[in-house]
Computed example of a mutant assay.
Amino acid sequence: MISDVLADTATRMDRAVDGAKDDFATVRTGRANPQLFQKIPVDYYGSPTPLAQLASLNNTEARTIVITPYDKSALKAIEQAIRDTPNLGANPTNDGTIVRVSMPELTEERRKEYVKLVRTKGEDAKVHVRGIRRKAKDDLDALKSDVGEDEVARAEKELDSITKAHVDLIDEALKRKEAELLEV
Rank of each mutant, 00 (worst) to 15 (best):
L54N: 03
L54C: 07
L54K: 02
L54H: 05
N59T: 15
T60M: 15
T60K: 14
E61Y: 13
E61L: 15
R63T: 11
I65R: 09
I65C: 08
V66Y: 07
Y70K: 09
D71G: 15
K72F: 08
A77Y: 07
A77R: 06
I78L: 09
E79G: 07
E79Q: 14
Q80A: 09
A81Y: 11
A81V: 14
A81E: 10
A81G: 13
I82S: 08
I82F: 05
I82C: 03
I82A: 00
I82R: 00
D84H: 08
N87G: 15
L88C: 08
G89V: 00
G89M: 04
N91T: 14
P92L: 07
P92M: 07
P92V: 02
P92G: 03
T93A: 15
N94V: 14
N94E: 13
N94F: 04
G96Q: 15
G96D: 13
V99C: 11
V99P: 04
T107Q: 11
T107R: 12
E108P: 05
E109P: 00
E109L: 02
E109A: 10
R110Y: 05
R111S: 13
K112E: 08
K112G: 08
V118Q: 02
R119H: 12
T120G: 11
E123S: 13
D124F: 01
K126C: 07
K126P: 01
H128K: 06
H128N: 05
V129K: 01
R130V: 04
R130M: 07
G131L: 01
G131D: 09
I132E: 11
R133K: 13
R133Q: 10
R134T: 07
K135Y: 07
D138K: 15
D139W: 10
D139T: 06
D139E: 15
L140Y: 04
L140K: 02
D141A: 08
D141T: 09
A142T: 14
A142M: 14
K144D: 09
K144H: 00
K144I: 01
S145Y: 01
S145D: 12
G148M: 06
G148A: 00
G148K: 02
V152Q: 07
A153D: 12
A153G: 09
A155S: 00
E156H: 10
E158M: 10
L159R: 07
L159D: 05
L159T: 03
I162N: 05
I162K: 00
I162C: 11
I162S: 00
T163A: 08
T163C: 12
T163M: 12
T163V: 13
K164R: 09
K164D: 06
A165V: 00
H166N: 10
V167Q: 02
D168V: 06
D168P: 03
D168H: 04
L169M: 12
D171L: 03
D171G: 08
E172G: 11
E172Y: 09
L174F: 01
R176P: 00
E178T: 11
E178G: 13
A179I: 12
